[in-house]
Design a protein around this nucleic acid. Structure first.
Lengths: 125, 125
DNA sequence: AAGAGGATGAAAATTTCTTTTCAGATGGGT
DNA sequence: ACCCATCTGAAAAGAAATTTTCATCCTCTT
């Protein structure tokens, strides 16, 4: 039977409070504010089970290890800050999936925008 | 001094003949048709030096190890076939870079389209 | 055609990320 | 409160991609 532990609750809360996809390391750091003894293995175990129960979905970005975000959101894309490495959600989608070459069948698409987030806007680099 | 070896020439030719980004494994397989003794370490070494001399650029796709394509091409995006795993180039770009939230600065973007390529169009899966 | 230093191939080593192991802690039904 | 299967934390092990090592080969200059 699936138990409700402090660790599991803390990880779930972190995603309810976050407004952006989180990496396992970010989850660890945020959830340790609630449960300081938390270990990375427990984060991975709960990320997996929270996916299996449909609470989280993985977010893949080019050249990046996966992040995770809450499941069930509307179609959207992502912004990767090149300074701090954080990922943000972009509402809406302007992509006109028009001229594919003949013979290609499109089933899905992903857009990644790179740049600077508000907190890193004015830094050097 | 940089030498012109059979291996290096073969790898370069593979990219001149290919019309799509190639993974290190794909480069190995294609270049072995020209130089059967070719090893994977040599592929990696030459991918690196061909990048340094500006002949190749890396192509990152979500959740995928990097491919490489010829440098200097016009802005374009990529199509990943979910059946065979090959990546194709998509000419043009329909992305209206759109309503970013205030405070975000966009510097670049990437679009990945997923689906079936002509050769895999009618297969099951 | 001979010499010197870069290049190669195979295997071992690294790197990065993730999963497993295992002994001890703990949630929750009784 | 008790029991015990599940969960946890730390460390070891695994997986996957890439880099390094090293003995040998080969390209280029002389």
């Amino acid at each position: 039977m699936k138990r409700s532990t402090r660790q599991r609750r803390a990880i779930r809360e972190v995603f309810l409070e976050a407004d952006r996809p989180l990496s396992p390391q970010e989850v660890l750091e945020l959830a340790r504010r609630k449960v300081p003894s938390l270990g990375l293995a427990t984060v991975y175990r709960n990320l997996k089970s929270l996916q299996e129960e449909g609470f989280l979905v993985p977010v893949a970005l080019p050249g990046e290890p996966p992040r995770y975000e809450r499941a069930g959101q509307a179609h959207h894309h992502h912004f990767l800050c090149r300074v701090c490495g954080r990922v943000y959600e972009l509402l809406g989608c302007d992509l006109g999936l028009t001229h594919l070459p003949p013979g290609f069948l499109a089933e899905a698409h992903e857009v990644t925008v790179y740049g600077r987030c508000p907190g890193c806007y004015s830094q050097e680099g």
